[in-house]
Simulated scan of single mutants.
Amino acid sequence: MRAITLIVFCFSFFGYSQNNQLFEEANALYNEGKYAEAIDKYENILDSDIHSAELYFNLANANYKLNNIAPSVYYYEKAKLLNPNDEEIKNNLAFAKNMTIDAIDTVPDVGFTKILKNLVNTLNADTWATIAIVGVFVFVLLFLLYHFAHATSRKRLAFVISVVSLFLACLSVAMAFQRVQLDKRDNPAIVFVQESRVKADPNKTSEEVFRLHEGTKVQILDSYEDWNKIQLSDNSIGWIQSQDIRLLNDF
């Protein structure tokens, strides 16, 4: 068993070293202006099931230099998924989106929906769940303090803080649940063909509702055979052939 573990470690280390060398070679090719060759080496790393924001960012940069609209948007979006707070990724993604043809308005959230979504999105589901657990733990401790305390002031303080902790725990559970639901519904994709005819129904003879072009981001709502039901940021809905798009959440 020990020998097997050592062999696995050696292969893992060898694979890491090889990918690191490929990454350095790809960066060197990029700096020399050999963008197509750099892309080949970056993609070789992806083929070994290695994923990182830096890798996707560099791959997007190389595609952007060659005016490859869909791949540059796609890989910037992938980098953003892995490192959502990186300003350089956001800025380069904005430049890449400027190359796209489709100008689609965004329907903003308003009122309570906007407030709720902003609150839910401030933290991920795991963080909300952690806050809930801490809140319950604090509630139990303060409830015990309230039960055994003799001074009225201590009992009052323990009672107030325990109620606040319980409320915070319940709110955090609700926020975690809502974040999970939002994440499940978030299934973005990028159009990867020069032009795609979006249909009213999932068949080629159906009425065409609109056309999309490479680099446009869509949300997948449903699927049927080799078709995907999509929604745009302006809430337009239609069916697109699965071969015309690439999912962003696939790693």
Rank of each mutant, 00 (worst) to 15 (best):
I131E: 06
K204N: 06
Y224R: 08
R156G: 00
Y56I: 02
K65A: 15
F112S: 05
S153H: 03
N63W: 12
D102E: 07
Q231Y: 04
N187G: 00
K78A: 01
E25I: 09
L29N: 00
F137I: 10
I240D: 05
T113I: 09
G135C: 14
I101C: 03
G15R: 07
E88V: 04
D47E: 15
I89L: 11
K90F: 00
E54K: 15
A151G: 09
L93V: 10
L247F: 04
A158P: 04
S172C: 00
Y30G: 11
P202T: 08
S72E: 01
F139K: 06
H51I: 13
K80P: 00
E214Q: 15
A3D: 11
I50F: 11
V110S: 13
I115S: 11
N91T: 15
L66I: 10
N124G: 02
F95Q: 12
D234T: 11
Q178Y: 04
R211C: 03
K184V: 09
I190W: 08
N124K: 08
K229I: 05
N44W: 00
E54N: 15
T127E: 09
L46Q: 04
P202V: 04
A158L: 04
F14D: 06
A79P: 06
Y75Q: 04
S236V: 02
D40I: 09
A94E: 09
A158F: 03
S196M: 03
F23G: 00
K199N: 06
L29I: 03
Y75V: 08
K229P: 07
Y74R: 07
F23P: 05
A26C: 05
G111K: 09
N92L: 05
